[in-house]
Simulated assay, not measured.
Amino acid sequence: MNIFRLAGDMTHLASVLVLLLKIHTIKSCAGISLKTQELYAIVFATRYLDLFTSYVSFYNTIMKLIFLGSSFSIVWYIRRHKIVRRSYDKDQDTFRHLYLALPCLLLALVINEKFTFKEVMWTFSIYLEAVAILPQLVLLQRTRNIDNLTGQYVFLLGAYRGFYIINWIYRYFTEPNYVHWITWIAGIVQTLLYADFFYYYFQSWKNNAKLELPA
């Protein structure tokens, strides 16, 4: 594992910890899209089907368990926790996320590296992760005012993907025959979706002002 892959994993982990900190400590999910969190739960559930059948390393197994457990915990908190769910803005979080999941599944059935159940599900998770942030970004545009923890959560998610792209570039030039077009294209699409958010995030940081997205 190279430093860029590790940085990506740690940034991804940090994003989850920030979100859990907000939900568990402040008892609030204001500004958080349940639709995006449900999509991430599906992403990890379909990606890690090999959790108990294929051992890579202790680190790999622990990270899989963390992302699976945290994603379903966050969904449970927003849906079931009596205090947390009161702050959920259901009226604003109306993105029809099934319209993202179904096309990704169909695309995975058509474009994959190997037509097996696990491989199609893994490919589906890659496609779905690329667009899973869309309901969250739409919610932030609707609410406009974004608290610090929510802003940091979304920023860290985008930074994680950025580090992974650098990791792919590094591996392309250092490892022979390292080519994964499906992962690369999906990752680039995912990173581009964050471009607008990154611009306003850095503007707010530069001007020491509250983060706001244009309606």
Results as ranks from 00 to 15, higher is better:
138 V>W: 14
213 L>P: 07
158 G>L: 14
78 I>Y: 03
132 A>P: 07
35 K>L: 00
171 R>Q: 13
156 L>F: 09
43 V>F: 06
48 Y>T: 00
213 L>W: 02
60 N>F: 10
69 G>N: 07
205 W>I: 08
212 E>H: 11
148 N>Q: 13
141 Q>I: 04
56 V>A: 08
50 D>M: 01
164 Y>R: 08
161 R>C: 04
141 Q>A: 08
128 L>Y: 12
66 I>K: 00
153 Y>D: 05
108 A>E: 07
26 I>T: 06
211 L>C: 04
195 A>S: 13
165 I>C: 05
48 Y>V: 00
186 A>W: 12
28 S>T: 13
25 T>P: 00
174 T>Q: 07
179 V>M: 09
30 A>L: 05
67 F>A: 04
90 K>Q: 14
197 F>A: 10
206 K>R: 12
144 R>W: 01
178 Y>M: 06
145 N>L: 10
118 K>E: 11
89 D>F: 06
100 L>A: 03
44 F>M: 10
68 L>S: 05
35 K>E: 15
81 H>G: 03
122 W>K: 03
199 Y>A: 06
125 S>N: 10
208 N>S: 07
124 F>S: 14
207 N>Q: 08
202 F>S: 13
111 I>G: 01
140 L>N: 02
82 K>A: 15
38 E>F: 08
56 V>L: 13
98 L>E: 08
96 R>W: 08
212 E>K: 14
77 Y>D: 01
30 A>Y: 03
207 N>K: 15
201 Y>P: 05
139 L>W: 13
48 Y>S: 02
106 L>M: 12
140 L>P: 03
94 T>P: 04
5 R>M: 03
139 L>D: 05
154 V>S: 12
173 F>V: 07
100 L>S: 07
199 Y>F: 13
107 L>E: 02
152 Q>S: 04
180 H>L: 15
144 R>L: 09
141 Q>V: 04
15 S>C: 11
161 R>M: 01
167 N>C: 05
60 N>P: 02
197 F>Y: 08
195 A>L: 14
